[in-house]
Design a protein around this nucleic acid. Sequence first.
DNA 1: TAGATTGTTAATCGATTAACAATC
DNA 2: TAGATTGTTAATCGATTAACAATC
Lengths: 211, 211
Amino acid sequence: MGKYISQSVIRRLPKYYRYLRDLEKNGVDRVSSSMLANALGFTASQVRQDFSCFGGFGQQGYGYKVSSLLEELAGIIGINRRHTAAIIGVGNLGRALMHNFHFSHCGFELVAAFDADKNLVGKKFGDVTVSDIADIEKYFAENHVDVAVLTVPKEYVRDVAKKVAGLGISGIWNFTHIDLSLEELGVQVENVHFAESLLTLCYGISLGEKV
Amino acid sequence: MGKYISQSVIRRLPKYYRYLRDLEKNGVDRVSSSMLANALGFTASQVRQDFSCFGGFGQQGYGYKVSSLLEELAGIIGINRRHTAAIIGVGNLGRALMHNFHFSHCGFELVAAFDADKNLVGKKFGDVTVSDIADIEKYFAENHVDVAVLTVPKEYVRDVAKKVAGLGISGIWNFTHIDLSLEELGVQVENVHFAESLLTLCYGISLGEKV
DNA sequence: TAGATTGTTAATCGATTAACAATC
DNA sequence: TAGATTGTTAATCGATTAACAATC
């Protein structure tokens, strides 16, 4: 309990989870560390090491039962705790998430979306209706929100982040290219930095072009 | 030349680049490894190690000249090679990128966007007009495209990826949650997996909830 | 039982950090 | 010159891989 788990391991958990879901969907009920390793580009040792961080869920000579491994992973990651999320900033990206992203597959329910644009307030995208950002404090006071999804223009990022951090959330899913560190407030930040991703790709293809 | 650079170093390059751009914008013309380290959450040793992979651009007793370090980094990453990109799939996410993402800041020009929906063809988002996906082969034959930005529904991912890989691109910026490996075709793939990112955050906040 | 595959310990590998001579 | 800070070598730390006894 409370054992430190390295970031490397944590980043692999969703990959296991997703692949095991596929296996289950396809009716596979048994899997070995080497099968997982093959499918995901890891090594069998690594797979067993990873699982043993949490106590080892396999059986010698047999491998892992897909359904129970999946259940363990869901428990570890915390999917099935019915976390809630609210989108802040309903621009194209916010709308893309509202329409196309399956929060439920990650164990989240998208419960609200906020924007300052009066023309958007009251409009519905996916299952959620946009609320006025002016009402955010009231809403957060009356409803428990675990994660704020930040998709606001960069001018507003710091203010919005500070505000929601004071409203009892546990995490921020940050799509802006501003780095936030709110750890001291007990708020986890997970960044999705498009530019860094594209620049990494840029480096890779440039390398191939070198004479 | 051709020296192997670890993935850890590569992932830090965009962070240096972005921060140095900020410094330059603010008129700072000198920076030390420890200043960079502080700002970015690295160590000074690490910063110096990173730069020395590419040959060391500093001066003892002085530090680094912002403008020339920036130029070196731009060269290493390959910004300024005027790479081109085309979006495939003009849903909400594709449109969000067309409207809000500054390809030019990453050294790319967004030259085209394709979709199968006839209602979208001819519409303009940001600076680019949507073309019919049926014309993609013709377009790629007549125009050089370095990177395909995959924002299509998951049913189409594999087919589209295979097709564009055969049309002379060097990289795929993959926003779908399908894992692609096209390295054997000489195509670099950079994934932006929203779900994995959110699940990582889920793990983090769940941990805090443990009794 | 024989074969397979785990969980774990030990060995290796790589990345980060520390230290310091070189030098601006 | 004295102070600052690099680039690099060596030391440490952590993550991955290999090996194998345990056992289903």
